[in-house]
Structures are given as structure tokens and as C-alpha cells.
Design a protein around this nucleic acid. Sequence first.
DNA 1: CCCTGATTCGC
DNA 2: GCGAATCAGG
Length: 169
Amino acid sequence: MTVLTWSDDRVEQLKKLWEAGLSASQIAAELGNVTRNAVIGKVHRLGLSGRAKSPSSAAPRPRKARPAQHMMRVSRPVSRGNTALAHAFEVELEPDPIAYDNVVPMSQRLSLLELNEATCHWPVGDPSSPEFFFCGGKALNSLPYCAHHSRIAYQPTGDRRRQAPKTTR
DNA sequence: CCCTGATTCGC
DNA sequence: GCGAATCAGG
């Protein structure tokens, strides 16, 4: 059922946020259901690793044999299947949800750090642009998006998994 | 310790 | 291809 691979739009988001200079953990929290390791791993596989940043760790590291890794693989009870999903689809509002981006009230727009469980996490615009903002609308019940954007985020084709972003430590 | 990205390698 | 474990730093 759930495809354990990076869907196209998730990859797009990953690219945008990464190139915008967000940290891997921030991106991971933003995308949901991925660890920062997964994000970094994907970033490298995509070939957009070094974004002209941190030349420190760019130094080659002597290999290190990894003998003792019989450690218990931490079971990752990823909750597949999103019961809240059905609820999201019942919301029918604007015929063109994407157009909503242009109408998001200024008073509602948020920066990444202002996001929380109750705010819509939908990114609008080019993250590298000062114009960039997150929707900031009222998030649906246990979803990171408002009614408009959850329709885009959870396209009927395929099922996207989501989780509430971690609250700031 | 907190975090960052980088790398290796079992799966 | 994926990502946990690990490393090397700040």
C-alpha cells in the first residue's frame, strides 16, 4: 500500500527547503514521517549535498569499519494508513486550492519557526525568497495543513503519510 | 550536551 | 534506493 519511496512532491519540497538553507532536521519535521538521517541521505543521493555550506565536515573522513552493529534495530512503528485522511478529503472548498496561496491573508502568514500543530504548514513561494511564507491557516484536526492545502498535500492518488511536526524541543 | 551535515553499509 | 548508526565538527 504505502509506497516507501520518496514521492515526487516530497522530493520537491525536500529540494526547496534544503536549498532554502533549512537544516535537515527542520526539513524532516516539516515533511513528516522521516528522520533527519533520511533527509540527509536523500539529499546526498539527489546529489545536492553541499549547498556551499559547512566546508568543515566536507573534509574526507578515514573510513571506519563497523563491526559491532548488532544493536537492536530500533523498531520503527511507523503508523501507516491515515485515518484522519478521510476526514481531510471531505473538506471541499475552493475549486482551485492552489489559487488560495495568493489570497492567504498577510496577518496569517508565518515563518517556519512560528509553525505549530494548530497552524497550516503549507509553504508558499520560493523558500529562498524573502517573500516566502507558510500559510499559517487553521490546521485541520491532527493535520499540518488547513482545509485548502490539505487537499493539495494529500492528493487522492497515492497516500501521503503525515504526522504532527515535533514541537520545539 | 545540544545541534549540524557526511559517510558507511546492512537491508 | 533507503536510512540507522556513526562520525566529525560547531
